[in-house]
């Protein structure tokens, strides 16, 4: 989920930019110029897929693809998320320049943690079902972690936000289950057809 401009305090925003800059530096250091083309094309696929509206009952939502991004791009996820959010701001007039640091940090950090925790387990799973189970947990984990980070940033800005944060977290549970299912199917397809894809 995105935080809009004007919600977070100056201190939180600056700290998030520091975290994002560190992540960007790490990501860019790990990418050589030749790899950049691949990262750009893969992040554009995630960007496009996350724009597709999925109907759930009466409402509709769009997926974030945080876990697949982390599992496929690995440490390069920070530059990829940064670029995607920047373009989202310019092309769809949503988001801001200052809050970009906080949004990149919450999303990319969750994706990176998913890669660190589940990457190896999924890569080394011999059975598809095992990989799918790990991928389901990874998909749900990434969404819950990013929502929790958003909640933590709001809590750091003002403790009175915490009641609203609890509602926000509860609203993310169904989304986490859907993300888990999609991640699990996506990983199973890649495991069967192109296992070298997983970072």
């Amino acid at each position: 989920m995105h935080i809009s401009e004007g919600v977070l305090s100056g201190e939180v925003l600056i700290s998030c930019w520091a975290g994002t800059c560190a992540g960007l530096a790490l990501g860019l250091k790990k990418t050589d110029t030749k790899k950049i083309v691949r990262v750009a094309f893969l992040s554009s696929v995630f960007f496009l897929a996350s724009l597709v509206n999925i109907r759930i009952g009466a409402s509709s939502t769009h997926l974030s693809f945080l876990a697949p991004m982390g599992l496929i791009l690995g440490p390069v996820v920070f530059p990829a998320v940064f670029t995607a959010l920047l373009l989202q701001g310019v092309l769809f007039h949503f988001g801001g320049v200052l809050v970009l640091g906080a949004n990149t940090f919450t999303m990319a950090f969750s994706a990176l943690m998913t890669y660190i925790i589940f990457g190896r387990a999924i890569r080394e799973s011999k059975k598809i079902f095992q990989a799918m189970t790990f991928a389901f947990i990874a998909g749900a984990f990434a969404v819950i972690l990013s929502a929790s980070l958003v909640g933590a940033l709001l809590g750091l800005t003002d403790k009175n936000f915490l009641t609203a944060v609890k509602i926000l977290l509860a609203a993310h549970v169904p989304l986490a289950l859907i993300e888990g299912a999609v991640t699990s199917f996506l990983i199973s397809w890649l495991k069967k057809n192109s296992p070298e894809f997983l970072c």
Binding site: T33, V39, A40, F41, S43, F47, A80, T83, L87
Partner: peptide
Amino acid sequence: EKIIILILLTMRGI
């Protein structure tokens, strides 16, 4: 330069 190239190529990829 890498981040600028990344933005440019992501646009084209989209």
